[in-house]
Amino acid sequence: MRRITREDAIKAVGGADANDVVISQIIGTGATVDELAEAQAWIANDEPLMNTGRPLPSGRVGELVDILSELQAAEDDGDEPGGVPTANEG
């Protein structure tokens, strides 16, 4: 399985919002492209995934969800961060 590259991370955060810190955090998880896709699915569709009985994201996927959720919350101009709950929180 292929690890996330800089280009993958930039695409995930939407080129204009990419900064070196976020890109480094995403790459630093050591996640694969498939794990990044799963994290993006959780960000976009958390309620349907939870309703199907899928366990909360954990491990590298959970880390990616946390990073992407924080980025999304920052983009929402200070709205309450609501992100997807992960097994890493607690």
Score class of each variant (00 low, 15 high):
I43R: 10
S24V: 00
E80Y: 06
A41R: 13
D20S: 15
N88H: 11
A73Y: 13
E75P: 00
P81K: 02
I67K: 03
A73C: 14
S69F: 05
L64E: 04
D46K: 14
P85K: 08
S24H: 04
L56D: 04
P81N: 02
D8K: 04
D20H: 14
G15D: 11
T52L: 10
S58R: 02
S58W: 00
P57R: 04
G62Q: 01
L36G: 01
A87L: 12
R60L: 08
L56R: 06
N51L: 14
G78D: 04
P85M: 06
A87G: 13
G30K: 00
L64W: 02
D34L: 09
W42R: 01
Q25F: 07
T86E: 02
G90R: 01
N51A: 14
Q40D: 09
E70V: 04
D77V: 11
G14N: 11
R3V: 05
R3S: 07
L64D: 04
P57H: 05
G90W: 00
M50H: 05
E38D: 15
D17Q: 11
I26N: 06
T5K: 11
R54C: 14
G53Q: 07
V33I: 09
R6L: 01
V61I: 12
E89D: 15
E63P: 00
V22C: 15
L64I: 05
G82C: 07
N88T: 11
D77T: 08
L71Y: 00
E38Q: 15
A31G: 08
I23L: 14
T32S: 10
E7D: 13
S24Q: 09
